[in-house]
């Protein structure tokens, strides 16, 4: 059985996923070695059980992210914080010096061109957490892949290690923030 791999997009810009696609022809090689069971680039509704490796992009910034993170943790053997937002909060966390109210007011009232109002139906919308936080402050994380975004080479190194059944410890050359 091929290792079951998932990728998740939380509070981030999807840049890390774009970088994943930059693997180009190496993607084909990867596809041979693993089974992609969940990803924003694949149309699968529910996060599956018994996942070997999950790459999580983005910070935990709203209630949905938080809930999701716990589900992912329970169903994944191995979790990689994928990119700077998941690792440090990065750009997502730049809002942290303001309160959620201030941010919503700024975005939905002050900058609104028409019909200014703050969304308040939290039955369908996720609520902003007080602070955006890196993934490992919310759940246990097993490895970190840095960069904004991580380079395709970094991702390749990490993925190939993982698929060989090894925890990737990045060599210093791949340790790179920003």
């Amino acid at each position: 059985m091929k290792p079951r791999v998932a990728t998740v997009w939380l509070g981030g810009c999807s840049g890390c996923h774009m970088s994943f696609l930059d693997l180009d022809e190496r993607l084909i090689e990867l596809a041979d070695k693993m089974e992609l069971v969940y990803s924003p680039i694949a149309d699968i509704k529910e996060f599956p059980h018994n996942v070997d490796v999950t790459l999580v992009e983005g910070a935990i910034t709203n209630s949905e992210n938080e809930e999701y993170a716990h589900i992912i943790r329970k169903r994944s053997k191995f979790i990689v914080a994928f990119g700077d937002c998941a690792t440090t909060g990065n750009v997502t966390a730049m809002r942290n010096r303001f309160t959620p109210d201030e941010i919503l007011k700024r975005s939905y009232i002050e900058l609104a061109e028409k019909n200014p109002q703050i969304p308040n139906d939290y039955t369908t919308l996720a609520q902003l957490l007080k602070k955006a936080r890196p993934l490992h402050e919310v759940i246990k994380v097993d490895a970190w892949l840095h960069g904004c975004p991580p380079t395709a080479d970094q991702i390749w190194f990490a993925m190939t290690s993982l698929l060989e059944g090894k925890i990737p410890v990045l060599p210093p050359a791949y340790l790179r923030y920003g």
Binding site: N50, H70, R75, K77, K140, G165, P168, P171
Partner: peptide, 20 residues
């Protein structure tokens, strides 16, 4: 307690690189 993996997927144990 912290939430942790509750399934039975195959195991990854070895380390690729120097563990810091």
């Amino acid at each position: 307690p912290t939430s942790c993996y509750e399934g039975n997927a195959s195991t990854i144990t070895e380390t690729n690189g120097e563990q810091k």
